[in-house]
């Protein structure tokens, strides 16, 4: 009997009634450690294309030159916020959440090697890959639209109607050639090792 009266008294308190009817959860804020879309820091991009190399989603990141400055650009709707570009970037151009902090703590570096495979049955020697390759263009700006080049230093060039790979070790693995090949004849395979604790 007393307990019933006690309950009625308890539930008739104006404060209890007010909180019962106006209860709301706390406003939701994104925590600072959330790994959001990468944002640019004020560091300078050196156009090494490591971010494009490691990116698992097609077309999510491109390194473009705007007003004479190279910088990576993220496409929302393609980027999956995995944060690998931030880990791969040697200059810390991108930042998101706590990645840069633990990258510094663990002295995280990525070591990668690449294999360029060209299916000679599919390759028609159009030279799209050699022209599109950003490393090729930097080595030999005079590379012709047919993909032929007089330089022996380029990664690949068209020679006698077939695309030939000359310097596989110069490849940065950005996969621009794959995207520009109309026959899907060229494939870039990458082997990436994550190293902790500095250079070996």
């Amino acid at each position: 009997m007393f307990s019933i009266i006690y309950y009625i008294r308890e539930f008739l308190r104006p404060k209890w009634i007010a909180t019962f009817f106006t209860a709301k959860t706390a406003p939701l804020t994104t925590p600072p450690y959330f790994r959001d879309f990468p944002v640019l820091t004020d560091k300078e991009c050196t156009h090494c294309l490591a971010c494009m190399m490691i990116c698992p989603a097609p077309d999510a990141i491109v390194v473009v030159q705007r007003e004479g400055v190279w910088r990576p650009e993220i496409t929302k709707g393609h980027c999956i916020r995995c944060g690998l570009c931030i880990e791969a970037c040697p200059e810390d151009v991108l930042a998101s959440g706590r990645i840069l902090v633990y990258k510094k703590e663990e002295k995280l570096t990525l070591k990668a090697s690449f294999q360029i495979e060209i299916d000679q049955e599919k390759c028609m020697g159009c030279g799209n890959c050699s022209v599109a390759c950003p490393v090729n263009r930097e080595i030999d700006p005079a590379l012709r639209s047919s993909g032929t080049s007089t330089s022996d230093e380029v990664i690949m060039r068209v020679d006698a109607g077939q695309n030939k790979v000359l310097h596989e070790e110069k490849c940065t693995g950005c996969k621009t050639c794959e995207e520009n090949c109309s026959n899907k004849a060229i494939r870039v395979a990458r082997v990436v090792e994550a190293l902790q604790g500095g250079e070996e």
């Binding site: 698992p56 989603a57 077309d59 393609h78 899907k184």
Partner: peptide
């Protein structure tokens, strides 16, 4: 991402 672009599933 998938309904927007196909993301990682949108491959050849």
């Amino acid at each position: 991402n998938c309904p927007i672009s196909g993301c990682v599933f949108n491959r050849p």
